[in-house]
Design a protein around this nucleic acid. Sequence first.
DNA 1: ACGGTAGGTGTACGGTGTACGCCTGTCAAG
DNA 2: CTTGACAGGCGTACACCGTACACCTACCGT
Lengths: 237, 237
Amino acid sequence: MADRAAPARRVPLNRDRVLAAAVALADEAGIDAVSMRGLAQHLGVVPMALYKHIANKDELLDGMVDVVLGEVGPVDPELGWQDAVRQRVLAARRAVLRHPWARPAIESRTHRTPVVLGYMDALAGVFRRGGFSVDLTHHVMHALGNRMWGFSPELFEEAPAADPPEVDPEQLQAAMADFGRRYPHVLEIAMAATGGDLAGVGAGCDEEFEFEFALDLLLDAFDRLRERGWSSRRPVG
Amino acid sequence: MADRAAPARRVPLNRDRVLAAAVALADEAGIDAVSMRGLAQHLGVVPMALYKHIANKDELLDGMVDVVLGEVGPVDPELGWQDAVRQRVLAARRAVLRHPWARPAIESRTHRTPVVLGYMDALAGVFRRGGFSVDLTHHVMHALGNRMWGFSPELFEEAPAADPPEVDPEQLQAAMADFGRRYPHVLEIAMAATGGDLAGVGAGCDEEFEFEFALDLLLDAFDRLRERGWSSRRPVG
DNA sequence: ACGGTAGGTGTACGGTGTACGCCTGTCAAG
DNA sequence: CTTGACAGGCGTACACCGTACACCTACCGT
């Protein structure tokens, strides 16, 4: 009798619960922990059970991206196109930053799920309502590129090498000099970005600033094209 | 004696030959074919032999990217900064396009090899010589993002699904109508891009055009910032 | 002549995604 | 009340992956 109550009528899995668990697992243990086996264990289930709800791992990843994109709120219809795009993209950015695994995941995806298409459609709609021609909207979306998901590629590494390996200052000095000889421009940029504190190199750049810098550069450029009624006069093919 | 001549004094492997073989293999059989085992077989050697020349698979990938980047010629010192950047980036683009696997490979890399650093340094140098401040050069490089490697992310899929699965026109009509209801803006863009020939959807956009469109948009924007002596007035940290 | 070493070998381990078949609890129709 | 379909979880198995570790062998400088 005790052992009849025990099984507790476990609620059956379904696609949404699988995806939610995958997202949670990735959040807390990194995307590498999201293997079919790992996820199954996380759910207290055998690996093959997942395949009853998800075709394969690729679809799992697609679904996870969809979940993140689902966290992006709707566009505020009150805003002008420029603010609307900005708001939406920055909202996407916040969602992506909440899930550190999302950036590489989105980049690696190749299938356009309905959620992804919906997101792109909504964004295109903002441009269209803002007076952009179909043509210009098209190219402008391309120009945004991955920035429309709220991120731009990392040019310089992020992680500051968690274990700074205790080198003697003289060696470091020499290495730095050598670096400066090879990559003078990279060095001066690094110096400027860290305020001369080269020990802090690897602390990285202000990603938020860089992102908005490029975004606004593009939005301004878009605006000029729109104003002058720009159109690509190439053969329609 | 015949069997003493037979072994033919096989030339020992070295790092460069391994990398060249890896690139060749990826070119002809796709990046997935480049496993340590696959590559070893391609070289007529046992998998573990590769580790005498390469630390691990990650370093192999880094090395392959370096090879591709090595195909990009030097900057023409005669050109103005705008043309120089354009030329260099488009040269990188040609190199990347010669090796279809290179784009995702570059995106996935996180380590900055000397070759990569050298490439970035040269590009930064072009901006500096063109009158860009260190500060502006920094942000401008970020704004270029992956475009500095000659590619922008694919927004719409490339492959037109090699096997068009013979559906009856009525179904297709209905599906199309449904698509248009869900994603009206995406649809109109697709219509415009293919000249109304929706059967050709998936043929993709003119990637070359999109790339140069965005590149020139950015270069022009950069130019305006440079002219007006733009500077980020944020705390130097 | 000889010892060190560079470079190729063989085996083995722990991981991956997933195909295929089975078993069981639920529920609707007879 | 019985029955049978079926949804959903289970177990086994396969092919493949990256790579640690020990070994063997042919060369080269001393």
